[in-house]
Amino acid sequence: MDLLETLKQQIRDNPVIIYMKGTPELPMCGFSQRAAQAMMDTGVEFAYVNVLQNPRIMEELPKVADWPTFPQIYIDGELVGGCDIVLELHAQGELKPMMEQAVAKAKEAKEKEQAGDDASSS
């Protein structure tokens, strides 16, 4: 699978994921720092990828959703935006419910899948 497909898969597999410069604990860019902080403020779990550690991701990811800059935040498989948009959603109180819904939806899908497996194995 090429990198572009791998990234799309990763975005599908993680209900909430941020591609950022640095890590939430040690951000290397003010925009990434503010976006990750807003996401941590919600208390909802999320995945992150440090694009500085993988220059090829930094090169390829902008093609996934045709978005030129970092950070990029994907919720429920869709690009939500960069730093400004996430901060605005957080200020409006919309970020947390969006993240919660995506996490709940992914959990439900996983449980359904497992239930299906159990049924077929019994």
């Binding site: 978005w67 030129p68 935006g81 948009i85």
Partner: peptide, 17 residues
């Protein structure tokens, strides 16, 4: 929405990015 608005701005400035 915000995403589409930001896209318009990025598109307008794509040569300068």
């Amino acid at each position: 929405g915000l995403l589409q608005r930001h896209r318009l701005v990025y598109d307008a400035l794509s040569e300068l990015m």
